[in-house]
Design a protein around this nucleic acid. Sequence first.
DNA 1: TAGGATTTGTGCGTATGTATT
DNA 2: TAATACATACGCACAAATCCT
Lengths: 218, 218
Amino acid sequence: MSEEPATGRDRLAQIHDLIRERIMMLEYPPGERLSEAALAAEFGVSRTPLRRVLASLEDEGLLRSVHGVGTIVTDVDLEELAQVYRLRMELIVLIPRLDPLPVTTEVISGFRELHQRALALRHAPAARDFAALDRDMFLALNALSGNQPLRDTSERLYFRTARIWLQAITASDIDLENEAEIYCRETAEILAAVEALNLDALSHLRRAHIAMSFSRMR
Amino acid sequence: MSEEPATGRDRLAQIHDLIRERIMMLEYPPGERLSEAALAAEFGVSRTPLRRVLASLEDEGLLRSVHGVGTIVTDVDLEELAQVYRLRMELIVLIPRLDPLPVTTEVISGFRELHQRALALRHAPAARDFAALDRDMFLALNALSGNQPLRDTSERLYFRTARIWLQAITASDIDLENEAEIYCRETAEILAAVEALNLDALSHLRRAHIAMSFSRMR
DNA sequence: TAGGATTTGTGCGTATGTATT
DNA sequence: TAATACATACGCACAAATCCT
């Protein structure tokens, strides 16, 4: 009975996360023009509260509202992408140093599950599943720090550029099966680090993986 | 003739920065209830665009709108303050490592001017001038990196907690004259590092100064 | 070039929630 | 406890800007 209270503030937060998910999953690709009226109708709210959500997404750099034109999903140029990646690589290694949380058995089993998903993905590669897996991997790693500003910042940066990676995959600039193979090795390494309770190694592994991913993406 | 075009988007950005400044300078202290109608009247806009500004400030953690109560300036508890400071200290040292910008003679003279202001402050200590100086010092250091996400993140975090420092000063938990004395020494050190074109030393100096400032504030 | 269609931005009246008397 | 005052949240109508025919 935890579903559907969703009144007022919570409801708007759900809409925010849902639209963000659609942007990340390229359901709304860069350049797409969203309609305030259509979205408002879909979610059963008026334009006013919906615009509150779009304003947040605009502040996060995912949308750009232009008077008389529409609400457009932003694109990310290579330089901006590089800057975000460089910063994210530095923030990753802060996780074990800033208010690290205890690694419980639940945490470990969570990473074991992520690795299983990676193995399954290797046998049935799909770009969207890949993106969802990487997002959940990010969230799992991000949850290892108790530093709220760090978590908020990392999340903001992740969703700022995650769709570009999926876009590169989809555009076949990158070989999907090869990427899945690589990702399996990476999740295996990360799982080993978690099981060894070595967060420092874990964060540096992830940092290296992000760097390599960016290299292949260029 | 660069003033007062200020139509539409720019005007709202100005209002945003102005309200943020008032919050930081304790003109709107934590707990203060702002009136949408009063602010809208002051800036000559309707409540609707003003609420767009307040929404951004709420997303930045400076305000909290409560239905039926008002728009309240947030307070910052000690744990949140500590988390923000710990993260800021790590971001500072990234400035010379992530897309550092060339240190021009204009940059150096800018820091020289900041040091002069610190000297003047020592002879006429005033809490508000102190806060303004520290803000400009932050902005000057932040401008040394060309990494836009880093700059945006650092700015967000700075304004999240800057008012608490001023609040501690004003509440006489801290000796203002002593702080001014300390700040002069710090700006002298920072100026020397800038003149030596040593950004790495500069960032670690600032990091140490922030750490010490937090220690005295507790 | 001009005009109509469509979109976001704005203004305002009302609904809803909270606190106080 | 009830009523009053006052705040934000919401919905709608219109203004302003842009694009396309």
